[in-house]
Design a protein around this nucleic acid. Structure first.
Lengths: 150, 150
DNA sequence: ATATGTGCAAAGATTTTGCGACCCT
DNA sequence: AGGGTCGCAAAATCTTTGCACATAT
């Protein structure tokens, strides 16, 4: 089973990193593997609690951070921390620095993809979805962070 | 001046919406217009306080919400509220519902844009930037929200 | 004049952290 | 046995909200 293979990979990565492979960590990771949506820490807590009723929210947060820091899981948005605003109401794309999380607008014509011109789907979306626009986010390093990392 | 035109547009929109065009609101909006980054509420507060030292953080937040709700400004990420996680470490794209903010993975081959194959820039980025990958976010309505809105 | 906004401070929500007991290796 | 983790609760952050006074139209 796919999930079991990835659990094994997870255990190997823990061992390699010197992380004790606790029951809580394994249940947390499996819950994330099996999630089809993109759960918040609270949602993950609810799911994991069905299996470990005594687990604490603190443990969930602590392990999420551990997993994120070691690249075992990913966060969908790089800007969950606080609201980020813009007055620019023209369709445009963004560059986001994965290091310092700074953001810059990309000139509208920087990419051959216009937020107003739908990108054609190669496969139809499941029925019921309605797509209004496409936002492209270029992720990388800003000049300051690129220098620091050589 | 471009900024002055947009300030006029802003004042018109306020009047049309029956929103008193207070000094605080104008200074806030102008600060957003003049920002080249994408400031957080706190960062905006710092800038605005240089002009209105007595302004309160509560007013900043309250007006940000007012502006957002009326579409006068935009938020860069739809997921500032809480962390959203995924164990899927394959490059892929996302569908995000602008209404309920639910998220779904798009099949890797749904779009003719591969996160690993760089989208060619039509214009070069300013020097110093290093781009590692492109994430496409399809924004729209999920089936449940599409139904509610007809 | 009246409805709405503002400043202040308290409450709510989300995330992190200190501490003693406990578990993995 | 020993270092790291867990559960608990308190603290730190980020955002919203109630209230009395001030402001915009």
């Amino acid at each position: 089973m796919e999930v079991e293979q990835r659990m094994e990979w997870f255990r190997d990565r823990c061992t390699a990193a010197g992380l004790p492979c606790t029951h809580q960590r394994q249940v947390l990771y499996r819950a994330l593997l099996e999630a089809t949506d993109h759960p918040s820490p609270e949602a993950l807590y609810d799911r994991v609690r069905r299996e470990i009723p005594s687990i604490s929210l603190g443990t969930v947060y602590r392990n999420i951070r551990t997993f994120l820091d070691r690249g075992l899981i990913g966060e969908v948005s790089l800007h969950h921390g606080s609201l980020r605003l813009e007055a620019n109401n023209q369709p445009h794309h963004h560059f986001v620095c994965t290091e310092c999380r700074s953001m810059f607008d990309l000139p509208v014509d920087a990419l051959p993809v216009d937020a107003l011109d739908p990108i054609p789907f190669r496969r139809p979306l499941p029925p019921g979805f309605r797509v209004n626009r496409f936002i492209v986010e270029a992720q990388g390093l800003c000049p300051a962070c690129a220098l620091k990392k050589n």
